[in-house]
Amino acid sequence: MLIPHPLLGLRDSQEFTYFGDASLMWRPDPEAPEAEAAFCEYVFLRDNPAGVHRELWFHEQGDRSWLVVTRDTTTHEILGAELASDVKGAAQ
């Protein structure tokens, strides 16, 4: 596969390490009253969609950036990629 790195363009997916659903960026509030349940859901449960999936890839043999890649899991077609820190920054 080729990952369209937002800074570096198309890169061999071999340079990357896959992590999982981009929801893993959104760690629950550890102080919340039901924190343990929220963490269990965060750590263990996945949407696992057959279709468009936002997911985390780490450019480990590259610029060491974490990316949020939007990819169709039924065709492997990639619809976009962003720097995770930008995604997080924009949301905050």
Binding site: F19, L24, M25, L56, F58, E60, S85, G89
Partner: peptide
Amino acid sequence: AGLVYRQMEFAHQCLWPD
């Protein structure tokens, strides 16, 4: 060694980029 470094980058960029 590699895994922890990766995990720390994850924490840095994805959890607490601030």
